[in-house]
């Protein structure tokens, strides 16, 4: 069964939103709503809400990164102080807790930030090659809807897009 990619560009969010709502309500054979991707020039949580619940899991990376950074820092620092026995400082113990906590705190943040960004790249699937159906208008002022459907459903989908004043519809047959 051959699959078609269809990209429709809309002039504003309202039209795109209406198109999404209709697609969501409809039951077209050979089209799954999860295969709908919305491309927009700005971050827009209200519009994304019409897509329903889609997950973002970056925060778990953050939690792991921060804990990992902090624990590693304290272990490594205190461990190296313990091993470097010649480093006695009068007036302070060899492993001074307050001083080590300062560095632990810094590493806690460092780990948090780094792993969060790693998580972002993994969750957002970046870096990636751009999909073939990409219009640079999306980075200017238009909203794009990209769907993957079976060839049989393509016409129906296209008619829905046209109904909602899509400016342009690109289509590509692919696997």
């Amino acid at each position: 069964m051959s699959q078609h990619h269809i990209l429709a560009l809309f002039n504003n969010f309202d039209e795109a939103e209406a198109a999404v709502a209709e697609l969501r309500a409809s039951t077209i054979k050979g089209f799954s709503f999860d295969d709908l991707i919305m491309k927009s020039p700005i971050e827009h949580p209200e519009v994304e809400s019409v897509l329903g619940e889609r997950s973002a899991n970056v925060q778990w990376f953050t939690l792991f990164g921060a804990l990992f950074g902090g624990i590693t820092a304290f272990t490594l620092i205190a461990g190296s102080q313990g091993n470097f026995f010649a480093q006695l400082k009068g007036g302070k113990p060899i492993i001074p807790i307050p001083a080590d906590l300062v560095l632990t705190y810094e590493m806690f943040i460092l780990g948090g930030v780094y792993i969060t960004v790693l998580g972002f790249l993994i969750c957002a699937g970046l870096p990636a090659r751009r999909s073939k159906l990409y219009s640079s208008n999306v980075s200017e002022d238009q909203v794009g809807l990209l769907v993957k459907v079976e060839a049989s459903a393509a016409a129906t989908i296209k008619s829905i897009f046209t109904k909602h004043q899509a400016l342009e519809i690109q289509e590509e047959a692919g696997k």
């Binding site: 991707i37 919305m38 491309k39 927009s40 994304e48 897509l51 970056v58 969060t116 972002f120 999306v138």
Partner: peptide
Amino acid sequence: GWEGTDRQWRNFRVTYLT
């Protein structure tokens, strides 16, 4: 390879905030 897809924006938002 940023395309402004909803998945990218969603994760972007959480990341930037964090």
